[in-house]
Design a protein around this nucleic acid. Sequence first.
DNA 1: CACCATGTTCCTTG
DNA 2: CCAAGGAACATGGT
Length: 281
Amino acid sequence: MPELPEVEVLVRHLGPELRGRCIQAVEVLAPRTVRPDSPETLRSRLHQAVFGPITRRAKFLCFQLTRPTGEPLQLVGHLGMTGRMFLLPGDRPLPKHTVVAFDLGSDRFVFEDTRRFGRLTLDTSVLDGLGPEPLSEDFQLETFRKALRARSQPIKVALLDQSLVVGVGNIYANEALYHAGIHPRRRCHSIRQDEARDLHSAIRRVLSEAIERGERLSLDFRAGTGGLFYYGTSSETAGDPDAERFAVYGREGEPCLKCGSPIRRLVQVQRSTFFCQKCQR
DNA sequence: CACCATGTTCCTTG
DNA sequence: CCAAGGAACATGGT
């Protein structure tokens, strides 16, 4: 379900629900998800721990907890491609692809992940080496420009590299390049100053607009209906007339919103790239 | 059976 | 040592 905006919206929803709640038990149904921790370690370390604030770093969720001893703990989660997290009333059965569940007494906090590319661990080393947060002051235009000058790979590929800037995934990389008018195959070092400036601001714009949109949806993540729905590609519930969510992503063959020429698709590092040949140079 | 899918990590090759 | 490309992880939808 992830890319930065979806994770951010989830974090904002989960924070108020989880804060202050105490973990009675931890069920690890997919040991792989908690690697390199063992299920036993996770169970014992988190037993009777209380949730504090939840924050986001890149596409990771960072859960601050306090143990009964007063010792602080940080649990780090990643949704992979298909992860969802939500609260489920205690009397309801766990969904088929639950990988970890926290017993909170009346409810369970559930991590469901069909493809199991996600993570949930006490090992915070995954946060090392990440680039700047695109929506913070750390994402400086000058630094971004210099980083592009130092690379030779195609710009679309660079945007997916979490050491250049974090949080951008396949959807928003395509969208940002479209809005900046830059062809996805352009090599980084060929990006001009004005183009770098446009791309820098397009990245910020597509991400913050997606967050606003996710907030507007007032998603019912308290399960019942299955939790927080990814609002990136799934067909949405009625009532939201905002049909053109994406300008290019998933729109192969459909007309460009600016010039009408058909959106094209190509493959870069085994991922689909969508773009307008006429508007992106 | 074919191909597609929001991500990261590890391995090979040059 | 580094960069680039590819495969792997695992499951489901169309």
